[in-house]
Computed example of a mutant assay.
Amino acid sequence: MPEAKETVLEINLGNLAHNYRYLRSKIDKEVKFLSVVKAHAYGSDSVAIAKKLEELGTDYFAVAYVEEGVRLRENGITKPILVLHPQYTHFEQIIENCLEPNLYSEKTLRSFISIAEKLNQKNYPVHIKLNTGLNRLGFDQPEISKVKELIANTSTLKIASVFSHLAASEDWQERDFTVGQIDLFRKMSWELIQDLDHEPLLHICNTSGLINYPKAAFSMVRTGIGLYGYGNDKTVDPYLKPVVTLKTIISQIRKLDKGATVGYNRAYKIEKPSKIATLPVGHADGINRIYGKEKAGVIVNGKYAPIVGNVCMDIIMIDVTGIDCEEGDEVIIFGGPQHPVKFAEAGGTISYELITGIQRRVTRKIIPE
């Protein structure tokens, strides 16, 4: 594999395929698989990821916002796309692009019916979100009768799925709460769909739910973070492969004597003669200040080099004392020999925040399967 000549985020489609097949193996063949590709496919490249997942056989996609779904449609994605958090101002755009909205409140339901009637739609696929305890979006149990009434009085909509979201499926200490959510979802969804002339898909399992509560797979599962190589569980992570690797290069190496300082606010003081390397990446690229002051480090020619001083907007400094390296050498920030979870934990955060925070000015490089 060629070395990086700039800061680059490598996206390994072979690892994506591995993760998809592993997760797919955990559910029955008749259970449908929804791939979550919101937030630029968790910080990577939503088009490249979606095209590969469509090739692999995913049944559904999910995005957070309408513009994300439109981008997929404009780039040839044909599988159904659920928009998880649509705003009613975008409902016409949803229909124009054959996207499928999550309707999570009486206002969104009434608004979408109005737009669908205006555009002469019939049996347009929508998804109904039920709140079972996460308390973000969704209808509460007392509202189900109103949902049934509104849907029964229009021919514009057809419920494609009914779903909810687990709050702590990765935490075994919250097992009773999670089981309670699953039971409540079963009751609420049955109350909603029992009088319909068709059987919508039912889904509540996210990645951790799929792994820890396979009997709650119902007729579809949703997986996001698992596809990108993270299982939210140290016993599961070894079976998954991180899809992205962030690499950069050494711009300059400087030898400093004891007493010198490095970076803004003189945040790092040299205690002994040292060799400091400068890298062209910073908090404007997604490597935030939380990783500075030796909390985290990078890999240079197989050796660990701590990040010293404050992270700058476009630059970080690392201590490469004792490491055989030169200007232009490749540096691995995370991925490969340094698991992204380890890097994120060093800064006191989680893999989700790390990988979705890599900014778009960082070049994306697709590594085919």
Rank of each mutant, 00 (worst) to 15 (best):
A296K: 06
K303F: 06
Y213S: 13
K272P: 00
P142I: 05
G69Y: 04
K122Y: 00
F139Y: 11
E327Y: 00
F343M: 08
Y104D: 13
A4M: 10
A160F: 13
L256K: 13
I151C: 07
H283N: 14
V281E: 03
W172V: 06
H40W: 02
G286A: 03
N135Y: 10
I113G: 05
T156L: 02
R186L: 06
R364I: 11
C325N: 00
K241L: 14
V298K: 04
S189L: 05
Y264Q: 14
E68G: 02
K258C: 10
F343S: 10
V83I: 15
I159H: 12
A41V: 02
I355M: 15
E68Y: 08
D233Q: 01
F139L: 11
N301L: 07
L103V: 10
Y88F: 08
M1I: 07
R266Q: 15
V362E: 10
E294K: 13
Q141F: 05
K26I: 06
V341S: 07
K187S: 14
V162T: 07
A64H: 11
I316L: 15
V31F: 04
A167V: 04
E345D: 12
G133W: 01
E353T: 09
N212Q: 13
I366F: 08
I315E: 15
E149N: 11
P340D: 10
A216K: 06
A217C: 09
G348T: 04
